[in-house]
Amino acid sequence: MGRITLDKVRKTFGEVEVIPPLDLTIEDGEFVVFVGPSGCGKSTLLRLIAGLEDVSGGQIRIDGEDATMVPPAKRRLAMVFQSYALYPHMSVRKNIAFPMRMAKMPQHEQDRRIEAAAKALNLTDYLDRRPGQLSGGQRQRVAIGRAIVREPAAFLFDEPLSNLDAALRVGMRMEISELHKKLDTTMIYVTHDQVEAMTMADKIVVLRAGHIEQVGSPLELYRTPRNTFVAGFIGSPRMNLIEGAAAADLGAHTMGIRPEHIDVSTGAGQWQGTVGVAEHLGSDTFIHIHGIPGCDPLTVRADGEVSVRHGDTVHLTPQTQHIHRFGADGLRIA
């Protein structure tokens, strides 16, 4: 069980209010991703849940019980740190065994869980090595192993993949998702990478300056962003936000259209612009177009085979059913 409820949780460091009162419910078994720009308070929020920071106000409940004053070790939560925080002088086996040893678990039970975790995480051959002798991905797995043997109520991850290279990151992303399917335990995952958020989450929490901007499933956030901040943050490449006449025509202050929802043609279209940079990724081409009033440059996602060059004139048509409208306050107009 791992249902976590934050009730008007606040955090201040001295005079600075990093987290203004915030409410959030995380259901049992859910994979929740906190996402937001650097410094928005994601780590702080996670550490509040873990108990590594004291709340300045409000209440944290785990499975309905008030855990606000409960020390970290007693909250039945396991955390995987960005730096992995492995114990460098202990072997992998001892690292994984450490929480069980602290809990004075019987040796045979410890051994059983270590075997199981090592098998699940492909670490069986490395149990007698020290963390210093492992690759980044392996260290990451040891840190996860150390977390799963405790059979916690929830896992907390703080940017666990940010020290890995791109290829490994994709692999580990899948492994963590699979682990979640297998264990069916609540996971809270902090990242500033919106691709990680989109691919892994059941529920995304978008934060800005300690405020929750929107909570919802990845597709909900993609389809109906509540405001311009979420619209710009979720989706890659980011949504084009166009101000001025084009938006006013639709009765909005800002008009949003995703790069993948714009049709390009060389003949005719609603807008006309010149190609700045065209990024050919093979599967897709991202074209940055100048000369559209209210948005410079405008990004368009086109077919990989499309042949445009710097300086070409192109015509663009937004797909009307995918246009988002936002008011002067940034909020979505339904």
């Binding site: 873990a50 108990g51 590594l52 020390p71 970290p72 070790a73 939560l77 396991a78 955390m79 740190f81 960005q82 730096s83 925080a85 492995l86 114990y87 450490f98 929480p99 602290m102 809990a103 150390r146 405790r150």
Partner: peptide, 17 residues
């Protein structure tokens, strides 16, 4: 690394441990 101490704290180690 203070994260090591925090990790140990979450793993249930008291101040002496």
């Amino acid at each position: 690394d203070s994260e090591q101490l925090e990790a140990a704290e979450m793993d249930g180690a008291g101040p002496v441990s």
